Simulated scan of single mutants.
Amino acid sequence: MTYLSRIRINPLRAESRRLLANPRAMHGAVSGGVPGAPDGERVLWRLDADNPHRPHLFVLTRSKPDWRHIVERAGWPDAEGEHAAIRDYFPLLRQIAIGREFAFRLTASPVQNSHAPLNPTPAQAARLAATSEADQKRPRGFRLGHRTAAAQLDWFLTRTERWGFEVPVSRTDAPAPGLVHVGDEPTSTDSDTSDIGPARDVRITARARRSFLKNGKGPRVTFQSATFEGRLRVTDTAAITARLLEGIGPSKAYGCGLLTLAPLQGRAG
């Protein structure tokens, strides 16, 4: 079976502040809620902090988890309410059908591959220097994070087809005469917009740069993340189901990759 959990986090507690600030620490706490070996299954998680006073941790697991250690150290263990909701994921997967629309949220790490980074890190520079000029084999590229919102959005929209869904055109009023929508902002039609498609029903609601030492003392891990929210339409049930269960993009251990769906309120699916 597969389970989706939602855990309430109390941001005023010392342990909560440590978990919220460090994806490596949160990864350890999440792994501690799953029985068996830490590497026995792929665990996806995402921290939603729309309300910084009431952040929620979402976790997708194959085995039934136990979150009492997080609730006791980083939640409200003696307060009323459901501190850690654990739900069977199958009812949602059963709703997946061609043409059905859902509201979605995804925190991902948009990346690109480059053989010549503009500002290489010391480790990248050492690897480049070690590459022999006589070596005819093309060196392995570097995975670099997209830093701008425009590049991150383009990364997302150019990959939705392979992920089994499309993002429909945004349901907005037509722009005023003489203006067209480019992304989220109107611009004059004097510029060349022939390659710009219609605005899609997706927006980036959060962006962050994360940097920390792996295992607390190893090499530094740095990545860019972006949270996408909007509306999607299913085009391939097998592909989107795989992405729901296996995640999207890199940095899955550190809070990226979990795609979640919700029914569209007041709309027929």
Rank of each mutant, 00 (worst) to 15 (best):
M1Q: 03
Y3D: 01
Y3L: 03
L4F: 08
I7A: 01
I7R: 00
P11A: 07
R13G: 03
A14K: 15
E15M: 15
E15N: 13
S16Y: 12
R18A: 05
L19R: 05
L19F: 01
A21F: 04
A21V: 06
P23V: 07
V30H: 05
S31D: 09
V34R: 10
G36D: 05
G36M: 08
A37L: 11
L44F: 04
R46Q: 02
D50W: 04
H53A: 15
R54P: 01
R54F: 12
L57C: 14
T61Y: 02
D66R: 12
W67Y: 13
W67S: 10
R68L: 09
H69Q: 14
I70C: 03
V71S: 00
E72S: 02
R73T: 10
W76V: 06
W76G: 07
W76K: 03
D78T: 13
D78R: 12
E80C: 08
E80R: 11
G81A: 06
E82L: 11
H83K: 03
A84L: 13
A85S: 13
I86G: 04
R87D: 12
L93K: 10
R94I: 03
G99W: 05
E101V: 03
A103L: 13
F104R: 01
F104E: 01
S109D: 09
S114P: 00
A116F: 14
N119R: 15
T121S: 14
T121E: 07
R127Y: 01
R127W: 10
A129K: 09
A130F: 05
S132F: 08
E133A: 10
A134F: 08
D135W: 00
K137V: 10
R138A: 15
R140A: 09
H146S: 12
H146W: 14
R147D: 15
A149I: 13
A149H: 12
A150F: 06
A151H: 12
D154K: 11
W155D: 14
W155N: 13
L157A: 11
L157S: 04
T158M: 14
R162V: 14
R162E: 13
E166H: 05
E166L: 04
V167F: 04
V167K: 00
V169E: 14
S170E: 14
R171V: 00
T172R: 15
D173H: 05
D173R: 06
P177H: 12
V182S: 07
E185N: 14
P186W: 09
D192G: 12
T193F: 07
S194V: 13
G197A: 07
A199K: 09
D201S: 10
D201E: 15
R203D: 14
A206C: 10
A208E: 15
A208G: 09
R209M: 04
R210F: 02
L213K: 07
K214T: 09
K214Y: 14
G216D: 12
K217Y: 11
T222K: 12
Q224G: 00
Q224W: 05
S225G: 03
A226C: 07
A226E: 06
F228G: 01
F228N: 08
R231L: 04
R231I: 06
R231G: 00
R231C: 07
V234K: 02
V234L: 02
T237L: 06
A238L: 03
E246I: 02
E246T: 08
G247R: 00
Y254L: 05
L259F: 03
L261T: 00
L261N: 01
P263H: 11
P263N: 02
Q265T: 01
G266R: 04
G269N: 14
G269A: 15
